[in-house]
Design a protein around this nucleic acid. Sequence first.
DNA 1: TTGTAAGCGTTATCAC
DNA 2: GTGATAACGCTTACAA
Lengths: 354, 354
Amino acid sequence: MAVTMREVARRAGVSAMTVSRVINGREGVDAETQRKVEEAIHALDYVPNRLARGLVSQKTQTIGLIVPDVVNPFFAPVARGAETAARKAGYRVLLCNSEGDLRLEREYIEDLVAHRAEGLLLAPASDRSRTAILSLLRGRFPLVLLDRALPEVECDMVVSDSAGGARRLVEHLIAVGHREIAHVTDAEDTSTGRERLRGYREALEAAGIPFREELVFRTTVDRIGGYRAAQEILALQDLPTAIFTVNNMTVVGTMEALRERGMKVPRDMALVCFDDVEHIAVLSPFLTVIDQPAETFGSLGAQLLLERIGGKASARARRIVLQTDLIVRESCGEGTGVPPRARGLTTQGVAPAT
Amino acid sequence: MAVTMREVARRAGVSAMTVSRVINGREGVDAETQRKVEEAIHALDYVPNRLARGLVSQKTQTIGLIVPDVVNPFFAPVARGAETAARKAGYRVLLCNSEGDLRLEREYIEDLVAHRAEGLLLAPASDRSRTAILSLLRGRFPLVLLDRALPEVECDMVVSDSAGGARRLVEHLIAVGHREIAHVTDAEDTSTGRERLRGYREALEAAGIPFREELVFRTTVDRIGGYRAAQEILALQDLPTAIFTVNNMTVVGTMEALRERGMKVPRDMALVCFDDVEHIAVLSPFLTVIDQPAETFGSLGAQLLLERIGGKASARARRIVLQTDLIVRESCGEGTGVPPRARGLTTQGVAPAT
DNA sequence: TTGTAAGCGTTATCAC
DNA sequence: GTGATAACGCTTACAA
């Protein structure tokens, strides 16, 4: 595993330069010479050292991907989409799980810069990631934000219409008769949390239902956070009739809390959330959700990033907003009438096999 | 982003060597000199180029991870476990999705070797991955196999007791009264498929039920494969009363097919499989499964790999067999009596929040 | 305590 | 066509 070009050269009776030419398929090499070199390469089981090449060319053909957690059913497809797109362009992906932790995120970023990753796909932990990002941008480091935007940060990003999605979810709840709707959202400042909260509020107010701050529950957006928020909700004097949770992890915790109290969805409580999960959607298709094209966040993000790395992107920041689908199932009660104002609505029973 | 050590040195009025010493925290540097260097580093926003360092030290601090698909709820935790363990040891992880494709897997391996990854965590596509692996091993490339063993390949690996798990699953089915049990397994030759089939067969024969080849359905181990296999099963003259699918993806396809036929689990068909999925387990805890400690495959695998990379491992191959848990829920019918021979059995209602 | 020289494995450049 | 030479940015070994 340590054969060098020079050794190949010696064996083939040529110079290292000629070996390099053969390896890189440059023309201007005699057919016979080429044959000899190839033979030597094969005989010695030579594998070119891309590290050395990278040092010369200043290109590592590697990008970084930082997500809070690949296990999250939203981020796993993001990772696959990014990796597949990157591979097709000859790039490798360094996977980083920030655990939503700002310090860890920053460490990863520094490490990626030190390893000369050529660019970064980042699903930031929160608005507070801003500082680290700005310093990257100042250095003209190719960067694409995924899922979450950052206030006053001008760079490429792929996000989805969080406010619109939330609005449709809440409109749907209202359409089937709910008026007391609790919202579980992110305690951290994130664009997704903020936008979904805005959509929630807008939908309420458009229906003449006053927005009540005490029905908004801020927590960590994981299972335990959802669980705790639901417990708070269930401790309320007047129970709401519906809960809208900000994502796929919180909804799981919320369900747990409801089940512990012996409450059935939708009989005792309606429940909606962002993010569809394939397994659940098929095994027990009952949650009404906003489905985001998770894999596209990754593949499109990678595409934008590679364009920027290749200098093929305009200087201007590009902001891509992916459309979402409202998938109406059974978690909102019997009157599954489709809210008239939900445009682009998709009703999905069994999802098509892909 | 292209500041070099020499530029820092010039600015600090010292040699590059001194800068190097400061960066690596070597002793024998005057406090005042160190201060000047650190100031220059800060002023120039210098980030050491680890590529160059790697070229000298022959260490990239990077390992590769090849799994069929990070989106698979079994492999996602494997990836997180591996990445977290690697990071804690100062290593980075290159994520590769082989799509279960031999050619792609081989390409990834070659690429990882070319990039001088220091080791590889591999969940092989099938027994046919053997050739590629043997040539790695011949070159003494640090390698740990995850989830699947390879015939006559002596190397470190982390697997689970597939045969035992399958046996307990089938014993449970038999204990609650099933005797016609179909098995959906991998059409590719894999150790997991083989072992689970063996466990299935052993459990049947131990109960005096003849093994019938025509009840074994070989397919691709993804959702569509499970769907097709289930369709074949449902086309049988005499329907079995239970189905045991080889993993979490096939079970989803199988459920789809059952639902399309209007069949309810367990009323019309019992269903069990390998792999528990957190979301499903909480949102609709009804599948009886063998739960594998997925994240441990990754973290332990990384640990073994890092030991080997560090030369801290004995020359002998280490084979770690992780224990599995039978989780009895509702998908096998009402008589949920626990099969007496299922040792280490776990009954789990709502999984504890983690 | 600090600096000089050589070299890690490749490629760009310019001779021959 | 092919090769010598000098980088790429760093560290090891040795010298001052």
